[in-house]
């Protein structure tokens, strides 16, 4: 255990050190990634398709073996000792997968039976609780093959919640869910996080991540390009002020005098990146210069804009 470092850093639910995965084809899927997921955080794991998110998640669960680098999940090395740490980890990886000819309930019973650390006595109750938690009680006895996409996703989440977990790894948890289901998942995550469960979630829905997460990590072509708390991410990014005025050229020159950057001006609007200047100073300067201010707005960039800046390519597949 790295006790020397633990004093400087908050305890980590997941940490990887220069984790690299090179597939036998020579393709480097994950390149020197050092993840730091603090205990108790809701960590959004972002990146375009093919950026190495899923391979990273697979390595965290001991499914894929790292070419080099170390992994610790809940303080235990992965893979190692039969993955003792993993019994405290619930996971949803690349969509749900169950036996089609078994009912949802039978599928969960099977996963529960496979767990050496869970007792046989309250297996039935555990499964019922998990099904109820995701709203599947009514469909418990139905064969999995007759489940809709959303029901399958719910069953996958139920499997992840079969036992009290200290860490949840959810890969695209809202995939295939209707808006109602999406909201329920968000609630569930918030509820679990409030109980102290660390949630590591990868999602394509940036607005989801923006709502749910306290931390984010952004992957691009196998490398981690940014990670940290959402607060740090916001403050690091460029906040834009926009002035609405009939005399927008004058407003533009005021913004320029204040030393703001990236000034744009168009019909009745002038806008610039704020930097570390407080916005009220800008308003005061505008008024002092006699600009008739009709509207003034401070826009924090959306996560989506930041994401595009960081990955440079939005949601296209990385080569």
């Amino acid at each position: 255990m790295p006790t020397s470092r633990a004093s400087a850093e908050p305890p980590l639910a997941i940490s990887t050190d220069v984790l690299t995965k090179k597939f036998s084809g020579g393709q480097i899927a994950v390149n020197q990634v050092s993840l730091r997921v603090p205990v108790g955080s809701v960590f959004g794991f972002l990146g375009p398709n093919g950026s190495g998110k899923t391979t990273t998640i697979r390595m965290l669960l001991g499914l894929v073996f790292a070419t080099s680098g170390d992994i610790a999940v809940l303080g235990e090395p992965i893979p190692g000792r039969g993955g003792a740490a993993l019994s405290a980890v619930g996971a949803l990886v690349e969509g749900p997968a169950f036996h089609p000819y078994l009912s949802g309930q039978a599928n969960l019973r099977r996963l529960d039976a496979a767990d050496l650390t869970s007792s046989a006595r309250d297996s039935r109750a555990r499964v019922a609780t998990a099904l109820e938690r995701v709203g599947l009680t009514a469909a418990a006895g139905k064969r999995y093959r007759n489940y809709s996409l959303g029901m399958r996703q719910r069953l996958g989440i139920a499997a992840a919640l079969l036992r009290p977990r200290r860490l949840l790894i959810l890969d695209e948890p809202t995939n295939g869910l209707d808006p109602q289901g999406t909201r329920e998942v968000r609630h569930l995550v918030a509820e679990l996080a409030a109980d102290g469960t660390t949630v590591f979630v990868s999602s394509h829905l940036l607005s989801e991540v923006e709502h749910m997460c306290s931390h984010v990590g952004v992957m691009r072509t196998g490398s981690m390009v940014w990670q940290g708390s959402m607060r740090d991410l916001g403050s690091q990014q460029r906040v834009r002020v926009t002035v609405e005025s009939l005399d927008s050229p004058l407003a533009k020159s005021v913004l320029a005098d204040l030393g703001l950057s990236e000034i744009t001006e168009s019909d009745g609007q002038a806008s610039a990146v704020l930097g570390d200047r407080p916005p009220e100073q800008v308003v005061a300067a505008l008024v002092a210069a006699g600009v008739g201010v009709r509207g003034f707005s401070v826009a924090k960039p959306k996560l989506e804009d930041i994401f595009v800046q960081l990955t440079g390519e939005g949601f296209d597949v990385s080569g």
Binding site: R58, L61, G62, L63, G82, G83, A84, L86, S87, V89, A91, V93, E94, G95, A97, F98, H99, P100, L111, A114, D115, L116, A159
Partner: peptide
């Protein structure tokens, strides 16, 4: 092929077991 292998291993069921 069903994908259930990844979930069994994540339970965790050790590979030898």
């Amino acid at each position: 092929s069903l994908g259930t292998l990844r979930y069994l291993l994540a339970v965790p069921v050790g590979r030898t077991r």
